[in-house]
Write a protein that binds this DNA or RNA. Structure first.
Lengths: 166, 166
DNA sequence: CACAATCATATTGCGCACAATTTAATTAGG
DNA sequence: CCTAATTAAATTGTGCGCAATATGATTGTG
């Protein structure tokens, strides 16, 4: 009765002629994508002060985690783990090499590849980063179960999108 | 019991001596932050082909949604809605002005402010964007309830982070 | 073997994103 | 009033992120 459109996705199946419905569907606060974009940016911002003492940016921190899990590994292997291409990784890794955290060397067996490995300093940084996840979990102020559930939902979403995208 | 550390933030209060636990805590797949980062990037990528016909990048699309909701509005008002500062918005809005979607004009009443308004073309674009949210919802391949729940969780997270950050 | 196709990385160019600074306008205090 | 503090945008410099392209190595085929 009231003209208030409540954008429930279970409502009418996309009433394309409905101007009000379209406006409601395009509201920022109704977008999953914007909630994702905003939350991701805020979390990155929350990490910044924690990573500054380590001399890492947030993407560099992710790359270090990938390397702490497995090193040496090639640029493309790293790229697959992080969802990034060489256009992003090459300069990022060069900066980390300059910072003395990693080495980059052509693979003797296949000169097309570049093996990225940790330096002692890079390995050592893991100890200094040990407190970062819990410090952030604290800043999030969410019960552990909710964090686990949210992470699982996001990984589920990512898995579905990776399927269609590639 | 079993030595399997499950990185619940409710576990031991950061067992700093536990090397295995630290390595496990720093695994990429155990990070909420990385799940968020990866999902956000994948969703942005999923939007790209939908927005290309409109001549919009993803952040520009978000800005347009903010303007379809309310225009004219100042740069900082827009920035607050999107979580962006003038350093990001000024060049973005200039590009959208060049594209003929918005106008930017100093506020007569307070010459410090710049009022951003939609052009006819910018308003018209809303009709062409009408199908975008449902097209993406389809690509996500998630039940509507899950989308709503995930969005709510993310907005909750964002609200908590905004509190500490500002 | 030659040579086309493929593959891994690097490079270039553009558009965010943000910290730090600058510029100009408004407001507040004396 | 007149100056100091505050505010709003713009500017500058750095680091992602990605599309498009280039470079060089490897693989596949005749």
């Amino acid at each position: 009765m009231s003209p208030k459109p409540t954008n429930k996705p279970t409502g009418r199946p996309t009433p394309t002629g409905d101007r009000q419905g379209v406006a409601e569907q395009l509201r920022l606060d109704n977008q999953l994508c914007f909630a994702l974009y905003a939350a991701s940016g805020l979390v990155t911002r929350a990490y910044r002060p924690l990573l500054e003492p380590l001399g890492l940016t947030y993407p560099q921190y992710l790359a270090m985690m990938a390397l702490w899990e497995k090193a040496p590994r090639t640029v493309s292997d790293l790229g697959e783990a992080l969802g990034l291409d060489s256009g992003t990784l090459t300069p990022l890794l060069k900066r980390m090499e300059t910072a003395g955290l990693v080495t980059r060397a052509r693979d003797r067996a296949d000169e097309r590849r570049v093996q990225v490995d940790l330096t002692d300093r890079g390995r050592h940084l893991q100890d200094q980063a040990a407190g970062v996840p819990s410090a952030l979990a604290c800043a999030l102020d969410l019960p552990g179960e909710e964090i686990v559930a949210l992470r699982a939902s996001l990984q589920d979403l990512a898995r579905k999108l990776r399927g269609t995208g590639k």
